[in-house]
């Protein structure tokens, strides 16, 4: 299967998040194709809410930057890993920047999903989501923060017609649990 890792660490280097993300390819086996995106090294502009991707060039963003490669990888993956340190109680703004741009992959039309308004699919199928969080950068981060983040990504998954399958915390999780989880995906 194809796995896309979006690493939203603004200070990538020798840390838990880097260790875990680098572990995924070697641990999940040769059958998996891994697409790894270190967002700190990429040009990703903010979504400006211009709706070009919804009503001028359907499915294509107005910005021509490094995001196109991510869109292509994400929509053709089975699993997308949102990897980030927890700062100010949420995933990084660096990760949120590409996340906001992902609306290019869904359709403007609204339909009822579980009795709620949500956007229709643009593509036939969508990848599932996983969260990989490093909670060590700020000592204020607590269990409720993780709960809040998890709930918001579950909501995001509804809009992306998929499920949030895994939440991994780098400082409490054993690396070997990740390939185990993925193999049961």
């Amino acid at each position: 299967m194809q796995i896309t890792i979006l690493n939203g660490d603004p200070n990538p280097g020798e840390n838990d998040l880097a260790r875990f993300t680098s572990f995924i390819p070697e641990a999940t086996g040769a059958n998996n194709e891994i697409r790894y995106f270190p967002l700190a090294d990429m040009q990703i502009k903010h979504c400006t809410g211009c709706w070009t991707c919804w009503w001028k060039t359907p499915g294509l963003c107005i910005w021509k930057d490094d995001a196109d490669a991510i869109f292509e990888a994400v929509i053709n993956s089975d699993l997308v890993v949102f990897a980030s340190p927890v700062t100010a109680g949420f995933t990084s703004s660096l990760l949120k920047r590409i996340q906001d741009r992902l609306i290019v992959l869904i359709h403007p039309y609204i339909e009822l999903v579980q009795g709620e308004c949500h956007h229709r699919k643009r593509y036939d199928s969508y990848p599932d989501f996983a969260l990989l969080l490093n909670t060590t950068p700020e000592e204020e981060t607590d269990a409720e923060d993780i709960e809040i983040i998890t709930d918001i990504y579950k909501r995001l998954a509804i809009n992306f017609h998929c499920k949030l399958r895994h939440v991994w915390i780098t400082d409490t999780q054993k690396q070997k649990e990740i390939p185990h989880d993925i193999s049961y995906h």
Binding site: W51, W54, W55, K56, T57, P58, G59, L60, D68, F71, E72, I75, N76, L105, H107, P108, Y109, I110, R122, Y123, D124
Partner: peptide
């Protein structure tokens, strides 16, 4: 009706026929 706003704008920009495009599909 619920998508009137979107359709109106898609048509205004001459993009209505392409509204279901999947440019990143393998």
């Amino acid at each position: 009706l619920p998508n009137f706003y979107w359709n109106n704008n898609l048509k205004k920009h001459g993009a209505y026929q392409r509204r279901n495009d999947k440019p990143f599909a393998a």
